[in-house]
Design a protein around this nucleic acid. Structure first.
Length: 495
RNA sequence: CGCGGGGUGGAGAAGUGGUAUCUCGCAAGGCUCAUAACCUUGAGAUCGUCGGUUCGAAUCCGGCCCCCGCAACCA
């Protein structure tokens, strides 16, 4: 097997002003599955996630809560850090916070590079401001009379302040070239087409700073004490600051001379996962920043859809928000692997690239059909025969189901999951055809061969399942190796 | 003409030119290895609508009618 390039894979960084959302859970789980898969194939993998912690909203929220802002974000960052083990994310995941000192330094270095290349300039920023809401309003946020819909009796103030801008328009030709050079930069195709269409309509420069006097919660703009960076400019830099860029800080205090940035960002394959709301930021703005700074661009931005519930967008006001912990809690009595249940429904029931739907009801149904009656029951029936008839199989190099391996290349994990599911179904049918429990009475040797074949099938299913449902897969492989029945059902019935 | 997604048996979905598939539910049968599970068979869809292209369209093209995102908590 030839040595493949090291793989860098990252999620976006969730903004820490709310409880972890199931949409983010899906994003990090999908990235985790990819990371685990490539790791098991022998590749060096750097898997990144973290938290985005600057900006107006957090400052306001902290003030409202009467807590110093740093303390406030520390609290939330901890909740997100705890999310990873809860979701069964690989413990090799790196966690970057945009309030980390070395990240802030990196964001400033990114600014300097873009500035030195002539991509940053200062100009007047004009915005409409509603004193009722105490917020800037864009035209699209105003009603048909050009007034704030919440405070239609108050006149809008026009505010005028000097901001730094990123010369997005100047990067247009570089982006065009990039899009031509990397035909699978954005997956799926239709998202890439959206970006190409957006690019062809012309780019507007965007503001990348805020007046510190009004909004101090941000990274200082190098050389200008009056401004802090707008949260996007700072946050996007995390994808390389996590690797120690611009200096390999991680290397220096571990006495390890390996330069992670060089290894993964310069010489590796770079993959980013994000939700569809982030398409433009990841596949245009961030790429433009990298191009401006003269740094290598991302190789693939994989974009997944949103999760609705009961046909509607999840919202607090509708009360249909599903939190990841809630789903896990629902199965903690029925199964030893409740986090694998969440992983399963997100990976199997939600399409890889389009919007999906999920309710506590649909989750339970899916659990019963595919986990309890599917893989769980199949494991019990095969292991029962294997243990009663004393059939074992010798250790062998496990191989992924080829039809699933193909889907990793396409980032279509949902289809991969369905391939595994259909294989489970095929094995159930095979048992009905072979009827080893009958054969054993007439021809013991033949029955044992049949069960051996079933064990080999089960082992391949379990091995293929391991990036998706790591704990479940590990348990099944262990049962096969030790020739044991599950002590209790892998996925028990819901009471 | 702002951008995008979608309308397929009772419910939820798959399916981008060639006999309409899966899950749930329903009906009948089988099996007993298994978590009252599993297997087989059946009933049930004029694939939103009108028109066009084609030997042939859910699938391609055009018109129309609905639903949902993109703007607030929120990915």
């Amino acid at each position: 097997m030839h040595m493949e390039k090291p793989l860098y894979i990252t999620t976006t960084l969730p903004y820490v002003n709310a409880e972890p959302h199931v949409g983010f859970a899906m994003e990090i789980i999908r990235a985790d599955v990819i990371a685990r898969y490539h790791e098991s194939c022998g590749r060096d993998v750097f898997f990144n996630t973290g938290t985005d912690e600057h900006g107006q909203k957090l400052l306001a929220d902290a003030e409202k809560a009467g807590v110093p802002v740093k303390e406030y974000v520390d609290r939330f960052a901890e909740k997100f850090r705890e999310l990873a083990p809860l979701l069964g994310i690989s413990d090799t995941v790196h966690f970057i916070r945009t309030t980390d000192t070395h990240h802030e330094f990196a964001a400033q270095e990114m600014w300097r590079k873009c500035d030195a290349a002539g991509y940053i300039y200062k100009k007047n920023y004009e915005a409409k401001y509603c004193v009722g809401c105490e917020l800037e309003k864009t035209d699209s946020e105003l009603d048909e009379n050009g007034r704030c819909p919440i405070h239609p009796n108050k006149d809008l103030e026009i505010i005028n302040e000097e901001n730094y801008f990123f010369a997005f328009s100047k990067a247009a030709s570089l982006l065009e070239k990039l899009y031509a050079e990397k035909p699978s930069l954005v997956v799926p195709d239709f998202r890439f087409n959206e970006m190409k269409a957006f690019l062809s309509r012309g780019l507007q420069d965007f503001s990348i700073s805020r007046l510190k006097s009004k909004m101090p919660w941000g990274v200082a703009v190098p050389g200008d004490d009056a401004h802090v960076m707008y949260v996007w400019f700072d946050a996007l830099t995390n994808y390389i600051s996590t690797l120690g860029w611009p200096q390999s800080i991680e290397a220096s205090h571990e006495g390890d001379t390996e330069d992670l940035y060089e290894k993964f960002w310069v010489n590796g394959e770079k993959v980013q996962y994000c939700g569809k709301d982030n398409t433009r930021q990841q596949s245009m703005m961030w790429q433009a920043m990298l191009l401006a700074a003269g740094l290598p661009t991302t190789d693939t931005v994989v974009i997944d859809g949103f999760i609705n519930s009961g046909g509607q967008k999840m919202s607090k006001s509708l009360g249909n928000v599903i939190r990841p912990a809630e789903v896990i809690a629902l199965f903690k009595d029925a199964s030893q692997f409740p986090e694998d249940v969440l992983r399963f429904v997100l990976l199997h029931d939600i399409p890889s690239f389009e919007d999906g739907d999920m309710t506590l009801d649909s989750v339970s149904r899916s659990y019963m059909t595919y986990l309890a009656n599917g893989i769980g029951n199949l494991t019990s029936r095969i292991m029962k025969m294997a243990t009663s008839y004393g059939v074992t199989i010798s250790e062998a190099v496990p191989v992924y189901m080829p039809e699933v391996a193909v889907q990793f290349a396409n980032y279509d994990l949902t289809l991969g999951m369905k391939e595994i599911q259909s294989r489970v179904s095929t094995i159930d049918e095979k048992i009905a055809v072979y009827q080893p429990f009958k054969t054993i009475k007439e021809d013991e040797a033949k029955a044992k061969l049949q069960v051996e074949e079933l064990l080999i099938d089960l082992r391949q299913v379990a091995y293929t399942l391991s990036p998706f449902l790591p704990r479940t897969a590990k348990e099944i492989l262990l049962l096969i190796r030790e020739n044991k029945m599950p002590e209790k059902p892998l996925f028990g019935r819901l009471s």
